[in-house]
Design a protein around this nucleic acid. Sequence first.
DNA 1: ATATTGACGATACTCAGTTTCGATAGCTTG
DNA 2: CAAGCTATCGAAACTGAGTATCGTCAATAT
Lengths: 225, 225
Amino acid sequence: MSKPPISQRLAEAAVALFDERGYDETTVDDIAARAGVSRSTFFRYYRSKEDAIFPDHDTLLERIAARLRASTADTAIVAITDAVRIVLAHYVDDAEVSLRRYRLVRRVPALRDREIASVARYQRLFREFVGEWLGDSPDAGLRAELMAASVVAAHNQVLRGWLRAGGTYDPSGPLDHALRYVIATFRHLEQPQDKGDQIVVATFSRAASPQDVMAVIQQHLESST
Amino acid sequence: MSKPPISQRLAEAAVALFDERGYDETTVDDIAARAGVSRSTFFRYYRSKEDAIFPDHDTLLERIAARLRASTADTAIVAITDAVRIVLAHYVDDAEVSLRRYRLVRRVPALRDREIASVARYQRLFREFVGEWLGDSPDAGLRAELMAASVVAAHNQVLRGWLRAGGTYDPSGPLDHALRYVIATFRHLEQPQDKGDQIVVATFSRAASPQDVMAVIQQHLESST
DNA sequence: ATATTGACGATACTCAGTTTCGATAGCTTG
DNA sequence: CAAGCTATCGAAACTGAGTATCGTCAATAT
């Protein structure tokens, strides 16, 4: 009769009712009733009403943490790339669920805030990992913060585009493109390690005036101290 | 007798009680009682219990929006820098309040999520502004997302450092440093406008092998298409 | 003096989330 | 087979946030 596990029945009932009546108009009693269980049982499986829509955020977060922990500083870029791919793949693998949830979250402020808070936890994870990776190099804290924010932002940009398009294409290409962009953005600032042993060269338009050249060089020297 | 306006009395009562008993242990009735008004009056001034701690986020957000709207694409960098400075100054000007709130928000998950959601609204504002600024150049959406995330992350990094240190120094220097870092990070990717008219040059260590040179050049060409 | 407006208090209501207790089914162990 | 043991679920009562409604009172206008 009722083969699927209760947690899944509850989640499906919740999404269905949210679609039909709206989020605020649906009570936990309604969800439990449709799933054929009691209100108590709902709160046994989900800590809150919102949790029923984000059932697997915790496990996914743990998978990301595990992937990052399994890496050293040498393979940091690969680890980060892998981790972001895992997250995106998690959405793509359940395209229908992701799309329903996206449409719902977009309309309900409480759910949007919740989603944002979840994303912040991913960003914190990346920041801590990159922070250890950078060690105590100058501006390590700032750079870790910026890299983590950029990685997460790149992922979100790709994911949102895919969701807005109705999940009609494979977003792994755009994701790789975005991640390459992020890596390239930071690489030129991470390159100089021993300034005393480097030649400084810059790129200019053929039409650049001497003033332009001076301005860019000054900018470069100021920003890399 | 009771000169300060009710909204301020309520906010002070809320912070004081949260400090003394903790957030969850304080009811709205307690806050209203200490402020000498009724529970109804509390909800007239603040939409929720959390609102009492973030009274001026909306007005600050509006000020930022106004500053950005007052700018064109030409002066975008100045506008963004100004806007971030306004936000940081808002915290620094009320150092005691900021510090109390910081210690409180750090301990209460509900408040932390709320704070994060507020930050996301700033980021959205910057993203929309930078998006218009970039127009329909290639990767405009991605770049706008990354720049907005980086600007906000830089601000947060500086602010958090200042808060953790107990607000004991002037953070405007570190903020300018962080913003210059962000601008420098993106500048090299924004520079090339007409590739047919440019000379491509790169920077290498004197000890770099030909393989290193090839790898970096390949990276550069792939990432700037 | 009367009407109007706005700020405040009182009250009752809905519902999320917590806690406690009790029932039942399945399983182990003597 | 019988007696526990445990896990799962339901029932019920409770706290507190947030909403809605109505009444009161004071200030100001007419």
